[in-house]
Amino acid sequence: MKILQALFFPPEQPGGVSSMVPYITEGFKQADWNMELFSLPKRVRGKGQDDIHFYTFDFAAFAGNPLIEKYVQTYRDYLWWARMRLQGEYDIIHAHHPLVALTLKRLFPHTPLIVTIHSSYEQELILNHRIEENGIEHRFLTALYGELEARVDVMLTVSQSFKQYLSAYIKKPEAIQVIANGFDERRFQPIQHDNETIQLITVCRLVPAKGLDTLLQACAIIKQRGHSFVLHVIGDGPIREQLEQLAIDEQVYDEIIFYGYMLHPEQFMPFSDIFVLPSKAEAFGSVFAEAALCRLALVGTDVGGIAEQIEHNYNGLLVQPDDPIQLADTLEKLITNKQFRQQMAYAAWEKAKTDYSLKRVIDQLEQVYSQLLT
Rank of each mutant, 00 (worst) to 15 (best):
E290T: 01
I248D: 14
E311K: 08
L317I: 09
V252I: 07
Q245Y: 14
E311Q: 11
S272Y: 06
M262W: 13
D254H: 13
L243W: 11
N315H: 13
L231W: 07
L318Y: 09
E290C: 01
Q320D: 05
V252N: 06
E308Q: 04
Q309T: 13
E255S: 07
A281V: 00
L317E: 12
I257A: 14
A307F: 05
D323S: 13
F258L: 03
I306A: 05
A281N: 09
L318T: 06
Q245T: 13
A283I: 00
E241V: 04
Q242Y: 10
P278M: 04
E308C: 04
G316I: 12
N315M: 13
A247I: 11
Q267G: 05
P324C: 11
P238V: 02
D273W: 06
A328F: 05
D322H: 11
E244K: 15
R295G: 00
E266G: 01
Y253A: 13
M262Q: 14
I239Q: 15
D302K: 15
Q320I: 06
A328D: 05
S286C: 14
H264M: 14
D249M: 08
A328C: 03
Q267H: 11
G304S: 08
E255N: 09
L317C: 14
V299T: 03
E241S: 12
P238Y: 07
E255V: 02
F275D: 00
E308L: 10
G300P: 12
T301C: 11
N315R: 15
D273P: 10
L327E: 06
I234A: 00
D302H: 10
E250F: 09
Q251L: 05
L318V: 08
Q251I: 01
V252H: 07
G260R: 03
Y314Q: 08
E266M: 08
L296V: 12
I310V: 15
P265W: 00
L296M: 13
I274H: 04
P270W: 00
A289E: 04
G316F: 04
V276W: 11
A292S: 13
F271V: 01
F284K: 03
H232C: 00
Y259D: 08
L293M: 09
P265N: 01
A292K: 01
A247Q: 10
Q320Y: 08
E244P: 14
E308K: 06
M262D: 00
F275K: 05
I306Y: 07
F284S: 10
E290F: 01
F284Y: 15
C294S: 14
G260Y: 09
E255C: 10
E308A: 04
E244N: 14
I239A: 02
C294E: 08
N315A: 15
I274E: 05
M262Y: 09
Q309V: 12
G316A: 10
P321L: 10
L293E: 03
D302M: 13
L293N: 00
E290K: 00
V303M: 09
E255D: 12
V287K: 03
V303Q: 09
Q309Y: 13
C294G: 01
I274Y: 02
V276G: 05
L327G: 09
R295W: 00
G235W: 01
E282P: 15
G285N: 15
E282G: 12
V299L: 06
E290N: 02
G237A: 01
V303P: 12
I306K: 10
V252C: 06
